[in-house]
Simulated scan of single mutants.
Amino acid sequence: MQVTLDWRRMAEKTIAGEIITFDEGLQILQAKEEEILAIMDASYKVRHHYYGNKVKLNMIMNAKSGLCPEDCGYCSQSIVADSPIETYNYLDKETIVAGAKEAMRRKAGTYCIVASGRQPSNKDIDHVVSAVKEIKETMPLKICACLGILSEEKAARLKEAGVDRYNHNLNTHKDNYGNITTTHTYEDRVDTVEITKDVGISPCSGCIIGMGESDEQIVEMAFALRKLNADSIPVNFLHPIEGTPLANYERTKPIKALKVLALMRFVNPTKEIRVSGGREFNLRHLQPLALYAANSVFVGDYLTTAGQEVKKDDEIIEDLGFTIEECAL
């Protein structure tokens, strides 16, 4: 017999500093659908305690597209994908800097420079460092870089240039990793996050839901991100792309996606929880409810998939009575 938890009581305990248990996390994911409003109300209580009604905006610049030797099954840029995407090497510095100006126009506080590939070369680091320095000299933006596996030396150079945050997602559960990619390991990703932390860069690491993981594994992923102490946790939902090995995977149902976001908020109550790639495709008309757990979103397009019109995101935030958080470095 399924036991219905007192969701509000769970929120109060979380705010008081008590960590929910694995079983409580699993009950969030497996709760009856009619409990979703009570779950979101409770997760909002935690979210509001730490972040009020502020929403952080992030914008992605796909600085290098495709041409990747990795075999990640979800990615249209991987070597095993046959997806109809644009491919190009690094954009020139002027284009990357222009993207930062667009991020400012969209009221994004964080500008994310993302490049495909296993790891950046020294030349790649030189290029990104040059662009970051110019951006930081002229704009009050937080810069997040996502360039692949890093050495300590390269991480230190990014830190010195002004990179505030580095993204390297765990993506899936460690036991599911071999089903998604074979060209790098779960431990490779953990190591890169730890290296960025060691040099003083804020760690950003999250997951992609909908790649065959069990409910138990999703809960364990939430606790793995807590252990990693990621400051920012992007929660992506698989958007199956034509030409990738996962092209025929089913979408995550909207209510399940909301439960995942609530779980992430309860397990990582003080962290920036960002509803990320695939939100439009998976959450559909329930997108506004996501912000009762998450306090951050991407605005505009993703890497190779289209995002929602910025105006619609602004309207969602306004209609909820929330406000956009201005960049504070």
Rank of each mutant, 00 (worst) to 15 (best):
D301E: 00
L150S: 08
G162A: 09
G17K: 03
A81N: 06
S202W: 10
E194C: 09
V267F: 03
N53S: 10
R226L: 12
E272V: 14
E33N: 12
E220Q: 15
S202F: 10
S43Y: 02
I79D: 04
G307R: 01
K136S: 12
V46T: 05
V3M: 12
K271C: 13
K64Q: 05
R106K: 15
A156V: 11
A115L: 05
I143A: 09
H184W: 12
D188Q: 08
C72E: 07
S276P: 04
I273K: 07
N229E: 15
H127Y: 04
L283F: 07
N89Q: 08
Y44K: 04
I316M: 11
V310R: 00
E102L: 07
A224I: 11
F22A: 04
L57V: 02
V235N: 11
C207I: 15
T252H: 10
K253E: 15
V55D: 01
K136T: 10
S130I: 01
A328K: 03
V190I: 15
L5T: 03
A247F: 05
K197M: 14
A115P: 01
R9V: 05
V275F: 05
Q287K: 08
Q287L: 09
N268T: 04
E160F: 04
L238K: 10
E102H: 06
Y111F: 15
I20A: 06
S78T: 13
H49M: 01
P245D: 07
A100I: 04
G52N: 04
S76Q: 08
T252G: 14
A294I: 00
Y44N: 11
E18D: 11
V219R: 04
T4I: 11
P203K: 13
E160V: 14
E152R: 13
V219Q: 10
H49E: 09
V193W: 07
E24F: 06
N169M: 14
M61F: 08
P69T: 10
N282E: 11
K259G: 07
P69C: 06
L238P: 08
I317C: 10
E187R: 13
I324T: 01
T4F: 07
R251D: 15
E153P: 04
D191T: 11
Y51E: 01
E242M: 11
Y44D: 07
Y88E: 02
C146A: 13
P69V: 07
T305C: 01
K259R: 13
V199R: 08
I28H: 03
E272P: 05
H168A: 11
K197L: 13
D164V: 12
T305E: 01
Q308L: 02
S214L: 15
A108V: 09
A293V: 00
G66C: 05
I218M: 14
H48S: 11
Y50I: 09
I113H: 05
D231G: 14
A224V: 10
E34G: 00
P84R: 12
L225C: 13
V267Y: 02
K101E: 14
K256F: 14
N268F: 03
G206S: 14
A31P: 04
V193M: 11
M264G: 00
R8N: 14
L141M: 15
N62M: 02
L286T: 07
V46Y: 03
E309W: 00
